[in-house]
Design a binder for these strands. Structure first.
Lengths: 249, 249
DNA sequence: AATAGCCGTTGCGAACTACGCAACGTGAGG
DNA sequence: CCTCACGTTGCGTAGTTCGCAACGGCTATT
């Protein structure tokens, strides 16, 4: 649609991987150096890119600024903050906050494990829909036709032996999640990690986000993990209240 | 330099303030709706922007992803993580990590205060150079001509009664910081907050970042704050070791 | 010390991209 | 049922952006 913008955005994607030189960057988007230079200059003037030494370009401060400003704007994030921090401090495991938007599930906050062994994750990352507990929680609240539509459009790459690989199985799983009020990922995404998640609800009872707790299997077996469900659900409930949800009798 | 890119970046800046409609956005950059639409579509295809309902645009996941990926890439950040988290957990005050790059001081990490009263800050934000402890620490390590050049180019807006307002005073302050090995901001930036900062050094002894601790004056008087200096400096030293610095004799 | 090679930078003319216009489609509200 | 508001589309033109080629600064090499 807009060629130069498209190229510039691609450049930023490349720069996210690390510092690059002008030649490398122009090669990536397949244009002459001078063209890449012009784009980089514009990006630089907005602080989206900065020069690192003479020969390298890196992502700049504006990007961090924008991203964090936008993240802060999310009411859920602020509302859930205390409950999540508390859970993390109490149990010491990695806690994530995720939300569903524009067909994707993205992590919007995280509290790292205090244990030496941790899972790798990142705010802003997109979570795979078929094998994460947060995605199950978020999708389980969508209306049935939409759920079916999504379930049938997924690819179901089998990431571990436990990964769900068919739309039918996934839809059944979503029903289970909806009924139980929580979701699990029993090493469906990564072999050594399992995970439980619960919904955070807004004023009208709709699911606005999902909290999850991820634990390496070596630290806690599956039953042990499920033992923390009451605590996780209490956390989700506390966050829900902050989001305007009112417990019904 | 590149008109359409320039416009698109401006749009993103606007969107950081909150969701906007197409008309609002086209007005901001002074173009026809159709033009703004094309830009937004391109941004959307890269996930930098997403539609919120039918009538609103918001910043998208790619932005968060890029920003956090780039932040993680910073070795200092990862290296200093444990030491900073520890200091924050032990004292409970807000801890910041900042670095100097491209003529600016930006916050690259923070650990929020556990006290109910906190200062407002944000990762990615640019810190004013003349009135923050982190900036003083970072600038104090630059070679003398560069320091002078910067000191003379600043504006020195007086944000509080204590703000330094002249190049001469600022240069003298930098000398003091360099000599002492730490910097203070005695309510020079915000009336109710004071702050101490110390340098984190790399393998060659150069200052690679600055740690600071910010405390509301109502919680601790200035002498009390200075009492935490040994702790802050120990933290900075631990982080420096992680960055490859070796304590001399 | 001289030279070659690498990388970023600049000015220019040509071509294509992206612009504004105007008309259409859709949904909400009166 | 009509009107209004907003997003969307196709099109011709003009202005922006592109690639080229030459320049200049820097480093490494012999």
């Amino acid at each position: 649609m807009s060629q130069s913008l498209d190229r510039a955005l691609t450049l930023m994607g490349e720069l996210a991987k690390g510092a690059r030189t002008l030649d490398e960057l122009s090669a990536v988007i397949g244009v002459h150096k001078s063209t890449a230079l012009r784009l980089l200059r514009t990006l630089e003037s907005h602080h989206f890119v900065r020069r690192d030494g003479v020969h390298h370009y890196r992502l700049g401060a504006a990007l961090f600024d924008l991203a964090n400003r936008a993240l802060e704007e999310r009411d859920v994030r602020r509302a859930a903050e205390n409950a999540l921090r508390d859970l993390n401090a109490r149990l010491g495991y990695t806690v994530h906050l995720a939300s569903y938007e524009g067909g994707e599930v993205i992590y919007i906050d995280k509290y790292d494990s205090t244990h030496p062994m941790r899972m790798y994750s990142r705010i802003g990352r997109r979570a795979p829909l078929h094998c994460t507990a947060v995605a199950k929680v978020l999708l389980s609240d969508l209306p049935e036709p939409r759920r079916r539509e999504i379930a049938e459009s997924l690819d179901y790459p089998p990431l571990t032996a436990n990964t769900i690989t068919t739309p039918a199985a996934y839809l059944a799983e979503l029903d289970r999640v909806r009924e139980r009020g929580y979701a699990v990922d029993n090493a469906e995404h990564e072999d050594f990690i399992h995970c439980i998640a619960a919904p955070i609800r807004g004023a009208r009872g709709e699911v606005v986000a999902a909290v999850s707790m991820s634990v390496p299997k070596v630290l806690l077996d599956f039953d042990g993990l499920l033992g923390h469900l009451p605590d996780l659900r209490a956390t989700a409930r506390a966050a829900s209240v902050e989001c305007g949800w009112t417990p019904r009798d």
